[in-house]
């Protein structure tokens, strides 16, 4: 599997509904999402984003991952060659599984964000008995 030759994945910009006030670019990070018995894990590529710049929220079953680039990363000087653009990252997912909000964990290491979403115990079906009210 390691024999695979890597290719450049062109960055795709997030399509906003409106315009942003700042002239910033938001890119869609490449992600892997996988599920095990107890949790759902999202791994996203966010090069140039430090831990402080990461923002993960889960609201109404929508998971939003956002990464703000580290301003210090930008070197000064004249650009001789520019093959990639830098910017912020943003992506949203609708999560179908029921997630325990309190136990979400996010870590970032070497430009890879990893969000672990533990699933909650499936609620036991509760049977409600229906009785006819007997007239007295």
């Amino acid at each position: 599997m390691n024999e695979h030759e890597l290719k450049v994945q062109q960055k795709q910009e997030v399509q906003h509904k409106g315009e942003t006030t700042k002239r910033e670019k938001y890119f869609i990070p490449a992600v892997d999402i996988f599920e095990s018995e107890g949790e759902v894990t999202v791994v996203a590529e966010m090069p140039g984003v430090a831990a402080e710049g990461i923002d993960v929220t889960l609201e109404d079953d929508v998971l939003t991952i956002r990464g703000r680039k580290d301003e210090a990363e930008l070197p000064g000087g004249r650009i001789l060659l520019q093959e990639y653009e830098t910017g912020n990252y943003q992506r949203r997912f609708t999560v179908a599984e029921t997630i325990d909000q309190e136990k979400i964990k996010a870590t970032v290491n070497n430009g890879m964000l990893r969000v672990v979403l533990p699933k909650t115990e499936p609620a036991k079906p509760k049977k409600i008995e229906v009785r006819t009210t007997e007239e007295e």
Binding site: V8, P47, P75, L81, Q82, E83, Y84, N110, G111
Partner: peptide, 25 residues
């Protein structure tokens, strides 16, 4: 846009040259 991985950015200053590449993971 380059097609060979990784994409590079090259910057020049008065006395130095800086090459950057995004290599997450």
């Amino acid at each position: 846009h380059g097609t060979v991985f990784p994409a590079l950015n090259v910057y020049e200053e008065n006395e130095t040259l800086t090459i950057k590449a995004e290599l997450p993971g």
